[in-house]
Design a protein around this nucleic acid. Sequence first.
DNA 1: ATCATTGATTTCTCTAGAGAAGTGCCTCAC
DNA 2: GTGAGGCACTTCTCTAGAGAAATCAATGAT
Lengths: 250, 250
Amino acid sequence: MQQSPVPPEPPIYRRIADGLREAILSGELRDGDRLPGENALMARHGIARATARQALSVLINEGLAIPKRGSGVYVRQFHPIRRHGSRRLSRDRWERGEAIWDSDTRDRPYTVDEVDIDRETADDAVARVLGSPEVWVRRRRYSVDERPVQLSVSHFPAALVDGTAITREDTGPGGVYARLGELGHAPAHFTEEIRARMPHPHETVQLDLPAGTPVIVIARVARTADGVAVEVNEMILDAASYVLQYDFDS
Amino acid sequence: MQQSPVPPEPPIYRRIADGLREAILSGELRDGDRLPGENALMARHGIARATARQALSVLINEGLAIPKRGSGVYVRQFHPIRRHGSRRLSRDRWERGEAIWDSDTRDRPYTVDEVDIDRETADDAVARVLGSPEVWVRRRRYSVDERPVQLSVSHFPAALVDGTAITREDTGPGGVYARLGELGHAPAHFTEEIRARMPHPHETVQLDLPAGTPVIVIARVARTADGVAVEVNEMILDAASYVLQYDFDS
DNA sequence: ATCATTGATTTCTCTAGAGAAGTGCCTCAC
DNA sequence: GTGAGGCACTTCTCTAGAGAAATCAATGAT
């Protein structure tokens, strides 16, 4: 009997997916082009519908394709927004055309299309950092060109901001940071912790995410010059819509 | 006949997935616990195998569960490593226990288990930033606790490093940055651009990623005090293994 | 005691078929 | 022309069944 070192060939659905992926990554199929659908794959390869679907679902879960019910499956695009960590260091540098990745150059205006403000008891991690279990919470959703791109949840120590404009929908000119400054607690230092993961269901709904799109989670702590934490902000970004940039010196 | 405003209830596979997700996120099922498998779901809900599989695949693609062939489906865990952008500002701050997310405190030793060095022609973006199409490329893979966690590809302008230890496997004490310093091109400024996406197939293989795991891509440019770019480093991180941290002042 | 084999269990791959539901285009009446 | 209706096409959901391949524990031979 011959048992070989057997280069075990991949299953059918995977070979088909590989072929389509090749076509996308090589540029043979471009942004928005239509992929062969279930019926086309069934006919071309002589396979069952479930197998054709499985091949397509590979690409969909990789974020390379988007299915449109009743229409077809299409190649996906990537046109990110650039988000700067430290604005001061950052701005002028990359605008000389020295960035690695493409992004929209113009500053696209964003809109806040959902706001929700509440006084709550914070969870452990936030309470520990802010040194206060009682917090005011500002939840917002940001959209660019009608498309939601970011969810943001800010926490402030209740004792610090009770009765100020920070607890109202309209925070006035300069936003919450200007108000914190007037209270004598101007943010001076920032720490941002960054993770990436697949979205939870409510994030998928609120950001209208297609399958195969991760989210970037940023937990940002703002501190005064004295090192007192005055804000904890957790942001959920559509990973397909953002490039983050940080500049620092050694 | 009653045609209702129909709150169209989700399909079976989704309801089952929701139930299991609930159990995971609520902590009822913990790290490493075994989920009910295909057969169990078929019996309990009276559904076909394909439907049970579809329910489980939802959780797998969300990165919440990992299937082990011949064994079962298990709840996944998250024990990240903390990577600091600006070491100088960063270190002491978070070690006071002021971080939002948990991570391993101890510095786990990493090993470089694959190295590959070549002289190549860079792609457009890298050539533009480095100001040189000819580059030396160092490709490496880093592992922590026997598990691969990061791929790294460094580019150096060929004219700058030809004949130096940077073109050899052992770069000597202090690594490539020490060598650049000796050449009078010590890196002083860093720019890091960050994206997250689903991995490409070769990344899945090299990092041994389970389904539902995004990667974080960092493109890092090192510049001298004069602003001359001396290194472009593209890193691919297993998103489930990392928390990035950046500190800066306003 | 150690090692090889066997068998039960589990996930993985695929076939064949069918109805539901959304999209987009064409035709027809006005 | 313009709008309404209908039809073809597409993806989505699910059933029923079957063999392949990997894992794990128990059994049996050495």
